[in-house]
Simulated assay, not measured.
Amino acid sequence: MKILIVENEIYLAQNISRKLMSLGHDCEILTDLKDILECKNVDTLLLSTNIFGDELYKIIENFKDSVIILLISYISNDTVSKPIQAGADDYIQKPFMIEELVRKIHHFEEFNRIKKLKKSYDEYIEFFFSLIDKENSNFYKINLPFFIKTNSQIFADKFAFDFFKFKNLEFEIILLDKPNSFSKIKSNNFKTPMYLINYQLLKNEEKTYLLTLINKKNIIISTTNLDEEIETKCVTVKSANFLDRILTVDEYFQHILINYQNSFSDTDLAKKLGISRKSLWEKRKKYGISKKK
Rank of each mutant, 00 (worst) to 15 (best):
M1C: 10
I3F: 00
I5T: 08
E9W: 04
E9R: 01
E9S: 03
I10E: 09
I10H: 08
I10W: 00
A13N: 01
Q14A: 13
N15K: 09
I16N: 02
S17V: 01
S17L: 00
S17A: 09
K19F: 06
C27E: 05
E28N: 06
N41H: 09
T44P: 02
L45T: 04
S48G: 03
S48N: 04
T49E: 00
N50S: 14
F52Y: 14
G53L: 03
Y57M: 04
K58S: 12
K58M: 07
D65G: 00
D65T: 01
I68N: 04
I72W: 06
Y74V: 02
I75A: 06
S76C: 02
S76E: 06
P83T: 01
Q93H: 01
I98M: 04
E100A: 00
L101N: 12
L101M: 07
H107I: 06
E109Y: 10
E109G: 13
N112M: 09
K115G: 02
K116F: 02
K116Q: 10
K118M: 09
S120M: 10
S120H: 05
E123T: 13
E135I: 06
F139Y: 11
I142H: 03
L144A: 08
F147T: 12
F147G: 14
S152F: 08
F155L: 11
F159R: 00
F166M: 10
F166R: 03
K167N: 12
E170N: 15
E170G: 15
I174C: 11
L176A: 12
S181Q: 11
K184S: 09
I185C: 06
I185W: 00
K186P: 05
K186R: 12
N189P: 14
F190H: 09
T192Y: 00
I197N: 13
L201M: 14
N204Y: 05
E205S: 13
E205L: 06
E206W: 01
L226W: 06
E228K: 07
E228S: 14
E228W: 08
I230N: 07
N241I: 12
L247T: 09
D250H: 02
I256M: 10
Q261P: 15
S263G: 11
F264S: 07
A270D: 05
S276Q: 00
K278M: 13
K283F: 09
I289P: 13
K291Y: 14
K292D: 15
K292W: 10
